[in-house]
Design a protein around this nucleic acid. Structure first.
Lengths: 218, 218
DNA sequence: TCCATAAACTAGCGGTGTAAGTTTTCATTC
DNA sequence: GAATGAAAACTTACACCGCTAGTTTATGGA
């Protein structure tokens, strides 16, 4: 097949299909040939639109990051904004857990990831946090969210009662964790996030603004 | 070469060499042929000692997890034990960051990982936390530690001032983060862990033991 | 109208995990 | 002590991988 009258591929279509394949079969199962086949095309044709496979993954990762809402930092106090952001971030990642290990390497040069970092850091500094502290807080929350989306805690335990019974006395019920995967993972996230924010609020009153416990935006 | 008089390979030697290669060149760079070459052997010989490559990675991952100290749960109050464990866990993972994405999938059937989960969960329940809460706390801390070790926050930002100057006003200094990688990442971890523990301690007094703020072990 | 570019193709390189079958040595059992 | 089966190396081979190079043809702009 020579050059077609209307292009078969666009960057958007490639990214969209790649994300669908990653969601369905995992990051390792995405090969350029499989992706191309899903697009009705031969493998190397992708290289007319992206220089490397990593560039495709970057675009996929940034699409996922683009769904994160940082609007709270413009309208709410820093603690509420952090909470909204963390939940939105978590929702965006858990919607596509298989791409998380790639995405968690850092923002790199991806626009949506950089815009997110910019909004979070800017919001915290504007609220009065010292720059170094703002960096730490953004990092700590990214650690927590990325870790929570990286892999289900609950599904990390095998559904095999005998495995636990013999040698791990406290884990006798662990084989049942998978049944309640969502509530375990979300409950752990909710608990951890609340604890984190509670601790940060205490730090804020101690070091930033001893008078108001939470300062309105700005 | 037929069967040698003394075996060239042992499981331990394979795991040790695999970990060294992963540390040096990354998880993706570990192939069975490269690993075998480093051991002075042909690729398929590894399959006399491990059924699959994943089995090798499991063994490597469990070696890393084995370095985590959960001794605090036997001797200290739950909050101090959690803190010790989290730092030890982080040290173990950051010593071999390239294996973290694999390891963070969950304990699976790996003995050291299961023993760790058992110790943490058991310690929390013994301290009075309701079982569901103990699960959440263990998960939340694993999220945080794994996220922090998954990839350096600081090194996630490219060292290219021009990238930030144009579009990300608050990230003007981000290109300098890599210089201070360790202090940024450790500072973020310390801040986040303290905040988490602070929040958990508040929850403990509120729901578990309104009298003593921290109960001695048992 | 001409022509550089774009977008598909085919062929192929060196690498991957691992299955299959071979050879020789070791350890055990009669 | 001989026989035997398992163990541990090997070679060969398969299907797949990311990607490069070169080819073909349609498109869009000068």
């Amino acid at each position: 097949m020579p050059r077609p009258r209307r292009p078969l591929l666009t960057r958007d279509r490639i990214v969209e299909t790649a994300l669908a394949l990653i969601d369905a079969d995992g990051l390792d199962a995405l090969s350029t040939r499989r992706l191309a086949a899903a697009l009705g095309v031969q493998g190397p044709s992708l290289y007319n639109h992206f220089a490397t496979k990593d560039e495709i993954l970057d675009a996929v990762a940034d699409t996922v990051t683009g769904a994160v809402d940082t609007g709270g930092f413009a309208s709410r106090d820093w603690a509420a904004a952090l909470r909204d952001w963390a939940w939105s971030y978590r929702r965006a990642l858990t919607a596509h857990p298989n791409i998380v290990p790639y995405l968690a390497q850092g923002p790199g040069r991806r626009p949506a990831a950089l815009a997110m970092a910019d909004a979070v850091y800017g919001g915290l500094v504007r609220a009065g946090w010292p720059p170094a502290r703002a960096t730490h807080i953004g990092a700590a929350l990214r650690y927590f969210v990325a870790g929570s989306a990286l892999g289900s805690f609950a599904r990390g335990f095998v559904e095999d009662p005998e495995l636990y019974a013999a040698h791990y006395p406290h884990l006798r019920q662990a084989h049942r964790l998978a049944e309640h995967q969502q509530s375990v993972d979300e409950g752990a996230f909710a608990l951890g996030l609340d604890a984190l924010l509670h601790g940060l609020a205490a730090e804020y009153t101690r070091t930033v603004d001893p008078v108001e416990s939470v300062r309105p935006n700005g």
